[in-house]
Computed example of a mutant assay.
Amino acid sequence: MNRSREARHHVMRRGLLYSLALCVLILLIGGVGFWALEPGINTLQDGLWLAFTTAATVGYGDTVPQTHAGRVFAVLVVLLGLAVLSLVTASLAALFVERDVEAEERQIEVDLLREIRALRRQVNALERRLDPDAPQEENLL
């Protein structure tokens, strides 16, 4: 059971890394694309800033696409960026939720084992009452 948790956790971490890498790739491509398409974007840094604000759908308005090609490209960056940024957010949330669930599952397991031990003691006590000469179980879990 512990192995399956570790495997799930490993897959989730890898998923987060893949979605982060994809996010960076989309932002880099977006930055280079805006830098190449837009005459008002003079540096790659400005292109990256426009790509980020566009992908995150923040839209500060300090730099905006002016050309038709830049606007079409912005639509693509919004669609791809929003999807990938949502994946990153979901992967991060899943990591935190998984940790909480694991702790709760461990506590439930401990409580269940405690209850089982108590029930076995009660069963043994009832058996002793019904048949005092019967052998008694010592292993209570």
Rank of each mutant, 00 (worst) to 15 (best):
Phe73Trp: 15
Ile29Gln: 07
Gln122Glu: 08
Ala103Pro: 02
Ala51Gln: 01
Gly15Pro: 00
Arg14Ser: 10
Ala21Trp: 03
Val11Gly: 01
Leu87Asn: 02
Pro65Gly: 05
Ala83Leu: 08
Glu104Asp: 05
Val97Asp: 02
Arg14Gln: 07
Gly81His: 04
Val64Phe: 12
Ser86Leu: 02
Thr53Arg: 13
Glu115Asn: 13
Ala21Phe: 09
Ala55Lys: 11
Leu44Gly: 06
Gln66Thr: 08
Val110Phe: 06
Ala56Asn: 04
Ala83Lys: 01
Val77Ser: 00
Glu109Thr: 09
Val58Tyr: 11
Gly59Met: 13
Val97Thr: 07
Arg106Ile: 02
Gly40Ile: 09
Val123Gly: 01
Gly30Phe: 02
Ile116Tyr: 02
Val110Asp: 04
Gly31Met: 08
Val11Ala: 12
Val101Trp: 02
Val72Ala: 14
Leu44Arg: 09
Trp49Gln: 14
Thr63Ile: 13
Leu50Tyr: 02
Val24His: 07
Val84His: 00
Leu28Asn: 02
Leu27Asp: 00
Asn139Cys: 05
Thr67Met: 08
Asp133Asn: 11
Leu80Phe: 15
Thr54Asp: 09
Gly15Ile: 00
Ile26His: 11
Gly33Phe: 03
Leu27Gln: 01
Asp133His: 13
Arg14Trp: 07
Val97His: 03
Asp133Gly: 09
Phe52Trp: 14
His68Tyr: 15
Thr53Leu: 12
Arg128His: 13
Leu87Val: 05
Ile41Gln: 03
Arg121Thr: 09
Trp49Ser: 14
Thr67Arg: 05
Gln122Ile: 04
Val101Met: 03
Glu105Ile: 11
His68Cys: 13
Leu22Phe: 05
Ala21Gln: 02
Phe73His: 09
Pro132His: 09
Leu28Ser: 03
Thr54Trp: 10
Ala69Thr: 09
Ile41Pro: 01
Glu105Asp: 10
Leu16Cys: 07
Val101Gln: 03
Val97Tyr: 01
Leu113Ile: 11
Val11Asn: 06
Glu109Tyr: 03
Asn124Leu: 05
Glu138Ile: 11
Gly61Thr: 10
Glu98Thr: 04
Ile41Trp: 05
Tyr18Ala: 06
Asp46Leu: 13
Gly15Tyr: 01
Gln45Ile: 12
Gly31Pro: 07
Thr57Cys: 04
Gly40Ala: 13
Thr43Leu: 15
His68Asn: 15
Leu16Pro: 00
Val84Pro: 00
Asn124Cys: 02
Asp131Cys: 10
Asp131His: 12
Tyr18Gly: 02
Ile41Tyr: 06
Ala55Phe: 14
Glu104His: 06
Ile29Gly: 10
Gln122His: 07
Gly30Arg: 00
Pro135Leu: 11
Leu112Gln: 06
Glu98Ser: 11
Arg71Gln: 12
Leu44Tyr: 12
Ala74Tyr: 00
Leu28Glu: 02
Leu44Pro: 05
Asn42His: 15
Leu95Asn: 12
Leu48Asp: 02
Asp131Glu: 12
Leu20Arg: 09
Leu112Met: 04
Arg121Gly: 09
Leu27Arg: 01
Gly47Ala: 15
Val64Lys: 08
Leu112Phe: 04
Leu95Ala: 14
Leu76Lys: 05
Ala93Tyr: 08
Met12Phe: 10
Trp49Glu: 13
